[in-house]
Amino acid sequence: MNIFRLLGDISHLLAIIILLRKIWMSRSCAGISGKSQLLFGLVYTTRYLDLITSYISLYNSVMKVVFLAASYATIYLMYVKFKATYDHNHDTFRIEFLVVPAVALALLINHDFQVVEILWTFSIYLESVAILPQLFMVSKTGEAESITSHYLFALGVYRGLYLLNWIYRFWAEDHYDLIAIVAGVVQTVLYCDFFYLYITKVLRGKKLQLPA
């Protein structure tokens, strides 16, 4: 465990907490893409199946359980408890366009043709694009609440820090995983445009509003 990895995980955790807290405190999930949240739920479920099969560390297991629980809680709040506030008219991204290619790619490019490995690979591919419905929703409405922006920023920072972690691990441990790295680069690049808007607008106290 290096500092980039630890900060990345903390940032990831922070993003999830920011989102849950926002929904809970405002009693509303307006502006949040339920589809992205469903995709993240699927990502965690398919990736963390190894909770049952292999033990790595207490940290690892606890974080996995927390991510799973927080993800399911978010989905529950959006689709059950605060369903009335869910902005589904603006959440129109077709998720099959992400899920189907992720399945196909996982079957074609993987480290080992075994169920758990393919599910892990699928989760890596899907995670890299799972935020697209949310970004699409922001672009459709042309704006995002500051708190939603903070959530997206923390989520983007998480993958950015993981990139630094992989560079460090390659250099220090001779360890690298090309599937994770390529997908991680794609994922981070998707956030770049948002990072720019976040830094130039949200951090200066303005609302994130896209130019008309």
Binding site: R5, D9, H12, D50, S54, I56, S57, N60, M63, K64, F67, H111, D112, Q114, E117, W120, Y162, N165, D177, A180
Partner: peptide, 10 residues
Amino acid sequence: EAPPVQKDEL
């Protein structure tokens, strides 16, 4: 063939 890599990342 290389052994499966242990997935120690989240």
